[in-house]
C-alpha cells in the first residue's frame, strides 16, 4: 500500500508540472494547444536517449539516437530544450496568425505528424516498440530495489516540481504575466498599448513546452520506458481536464486539478478492472474525462480555484497613506 501511495505521489508531481505548463499556455495566454502531450513525449524521448548508453543498433535495446549517458540534471534539461525547440517550430507556423483557432488546428496536425514519424522512423526512438532501459537517476550508485528507490525519486520529483512552481509563479505574478493575461483578453488592446503580441505568445508557448518536456523527462526516468501508445490524444485531454477543473490561470488550482483528475480519477482507478472486458475500463475512463471537461466548462468554467484577483493595498502607494488614514479612499 505504501509503495502504491508513493507511486501516486510521484505521478502527482509529474501531472502538476504538466498542468503548470499548459496553464501558462492556455490559462494565462489563451493559446489553444491540443497536442500538449507531444511536448511531454519529446521531452521524455530526448531525456531518455540522453541518459541511456549508446544503442547497439538492432540488439536487445533496439535502435535510437544519442546514447550520451548524461547524469540526471542534464538529461531532463536536454528533454526540456528539445520540447521547447519543437515549440518554437510550432509557434512559427501557428502563432504568426493572430487568431488562436488557427494554432489549434496546427497543433493537432503537428502532433499527428510527430507521432507518425516517431512511430515509423525506427532509428530515432525505436519506433512503435519504444525505448526501454532508461537508467533511473543516481540509482547506479545507490543500487536500490524498485520499491526502495521510490523515496529518493519522490524527493527528486518534489524538488523539480518546486522549481517549476517558482518559475510559473514568478512569471504569473509579474508585469510579464499581466501582459499574457491582457493578450488572452484582447490581443488588439495589448498591441495598441505597445506589447509585441507575437513575441509574448511565442515565449509563453515555448516556456510551456519546456515545462511539458521537463515533466516528460521525469516520467521516462521513473518509468524507464516510453513508446507511442503512451501518449495519445487522450493524454492531452487529461491535462486539459486537470487544468479546467483546477482553475485556469491559477497555479495552485493546477495542483488541485492534477490531484483530482490524473491522480485520483485516472491513476487511482487503475485497479478497477472488468475481467470479461479488459479494455472496457480504459474506454469508460476516456469517456468520463470528456464528460468531466464538458461539465467543468458548462457549470464552473473558472474551475474549483478560480484565477486570483490581484488587489493592491493602498498603503504601499507613496503619498496615499494620509488619504487612507483620513478615510478619503471611497471617492476620488
Amino acid at each position: 500500500m505504501l509503495h502504491y501511495l508513493l507511486t501516486l505521489a510521484i505521478f502527482f508531481a509529474f501531472f502538476a508540472v504538466e498542468a503548470w505548463g499548459l496553464n501558462l499556455q492556455f490559462g494565462l495566454t489563451g493559446i489553444l494547444d491540443f497536442t500538449y502531450i507531444t511536448f511531454v513525449a519529446i521531452g521524455a524521448y530526448f531525456a531518455g536517449v540522453a541518459a541511456m548508453t549508446p544503442s547497439t543498433n538492432g540488439g536487445m535495446g533496439g535502435s535510437y539516437i544519442f546514447g550520451w549517458q548524461l547524469p540526471f540534471p542534464l538529461s531532463p534539461v536536454i528533454g526540456g530544450i528539445a520540447a521547447a525547440m519543437l515549440g518554437v517550430v510550432v509557434g512559427i507556423i501557428g502563432l504568426r496568425r493572430l487568431r488562436s483557432d488557427y494554432l489549434a488546428i496546427v497543433t493537432v496536425s503537428v502532433g499527428q505528424i510527430v507521432w507518425m514519424v516517431i512511430g515509423n522512423a525506427t532509428p530515432l526512438f525505436n519506433g512503435w516498440d519504444g525505448i526501454v532501459g532508461v537508467p533511473q537517476p543516481y540509482n547506479s550508485v545507490m543500487n536500490l530495489s524498485t520499491n526502495n528507490y521510490e523515496w529518493p525519486f519522490l524527493g527528486i520529483s518534489v524538488i523539480v516540481a518546486a522549481i517549476i512552481f517558482w518559475l510559473v509563479r514568478s512569471l504569473t505574478e509579474s508585469p510579464y504575466g499581466r501582459i499574457l493575461r491582457a493578450i488572452r483578453e484582447d490581443e488588439n488592446v495589448a498591441a495598441a498599448l505597445g506589447k509585441n503580441v507575437f513575441r509574448y505568445r511565442m515565449s509563453a508557448f515555448v516556456i510551456g513546452a519546456f515545462i511539458a518536456g521537463i515533466s516528460g523527462a521525469l516520467q521516462i526516468e521513473y518509468i524507464g520506458a516510453w513508446n507511442p501508445s503512451g501518449w495519445t490524444t487522450l493524454e492531452t485531454f487529461i491535462v486539459w481536464a486537470a487544468m479546467l477543473v483546477g482553475g485556469r490561470g491559477n497555479n495552485r488550482g493546477m495542483l488541485l486539478g492534477a490531484f483530482l483528475v490524473p491522480v485520483l480519477f485516472t491513476e487511482a482507478t487503475r485497479w478497477i478492472t472488468i475481467p470479461a472486458h479488459p479494455l472496457l475500463m480504459e474506454a469508460i475512463r476516456g469517456m468520463a474525462i470528456g464528460l468531466l471537461m464538458v461539465l467543468a466548462v458548462r457549470f464552473r468554467p473558472q474551475g474549483v480555484i478560480p484565477e486570483r484577483k490581484r488587489v493592491f493595498p493602498l498603503t504601499t502607494i507613496p503619498g496615499l497613506k494620509e488619504d487612507v488614514a483620513n478615510g478619503h479612499t471611497a471617492q476620488g
Partner: peptide
C-alpha cells in the same frame, strides 16, 4: 499594463 518602461515585462526580468 499600459506602461511600457517598467521592468519585468520579459520573462527573464520577471
Amino acid at each position: 499594463l499600459a506602461s511600457n518602461d517598467q521592468p519585468g515585462q520579459t520573462s527573464w526580468q520577471a
